[in-house]
């Protein structure tokens, strides 16, 4: 692993980018790494652009705030790319050389030529992944898109292991301490929990989604 990995997650409010960042950061901490996690600093509104940032390192992390130069960008909704529903435009802005972009898609679309060229110049690898599809197929809710995205991340990169993600997701939804990123996130959590009625069911569904996405990712990169 590179000394310090910076990850930017862009999506729409309600898609769980804040939750995903928390699960990822906590997973890194479980692996005895250092991590910091923060959301984009704005007013939270459903379906408005939402971003969160994760920094993972073997050594002390100092830099705070939004990740300006990410190593990895995760895009949770095609509108981020197609409609510019994002705080950082274009969607790959600031990406470091040899960076990785993992983008969720629901229907096929292609990038315009300038974007393709720019990504090529920086030798960026772009993976389109059907995270929402997997969330619906396996978990029966698109609210779990964020979980599927994490599965893909673990499959495509070695940032954290699948097991750590599972453990972290478990702590996130079943842990004793009430999670706090924002009041709005806490309310959404309740709605996720209601859909599954039982936390256990949510946990096993999360695990199934993580595994499925992880496997798919492995087949993409091989």
């Amino acid at each position: 692993m590179k000394k310090e990995i910076s990850i930017r997650m862009s999506g729409l409010g309600g898609q769980g980018v804040v939750t995903a960042a928390h699960i990822l950061g906590q997973a890194a901490v479980l692996e005895k790494k250092n991590a910091t996690v923060n959301p984009f600093f704005g007013a939270e509104k459903r379906l408005a652009p939402a971003e969160s940032y994760v920094r993972i390192s073997e050594s002390e992390i100092y830099d705070v705030g939004e990740v300006v130069y990410p190593d990895i960008i995760m895009i949770y909704h095609p509108d981020v790319i197609l409609k510019g529903k994002s705080y950082t435009m274009p969607f790959y802005s600031g990406i470091r050389k040899n960076g990785i972009i993992i983008a969720n898609y629901t229907t096929e679309f292609s990038l315009d030529e300038t974007d393709k060229e720019e990504l090529k110049k920086s030798n960026v690898k772009l993976y389109f992944v059907p995270a929402t599809k997997i969330a619906l197929e396996v978990g029966n809710t698109e609210l779990s898109t964020n979980i599927a995205m994490l599965g893909y991340l673990a499959g495509i990169t070695d940032v954290v292991s699948l097991d750590s993600l599972k453990q972290s997701a478990y702590e996130r939804f079943a842990g004793k301490t009430k999670f706090v990123a924002s009041a709005t996130t806490a309310a959404l959590d309740e709605s996720v929990k209601k859909q599954y009625a039982k936390i256990e069911q949510l946990i096993s569904s999360n695990n199934a989604i993580l595994e499925k996405a992880y496997k798919e990712a492995k087949s993409i990169i091989s």
Binding site: Q26, N34, A35, N38, F41
Partner: peptide, 12 residues
């Protein structure tokens, strides 16, 4: 404390 930079950042 600097708002957001610290209040909303998860750290050890």
């Amino acid at each position: 404390v600097d708002g957001f930079f610290v209040t909303h950042t998860r750290q050890k």
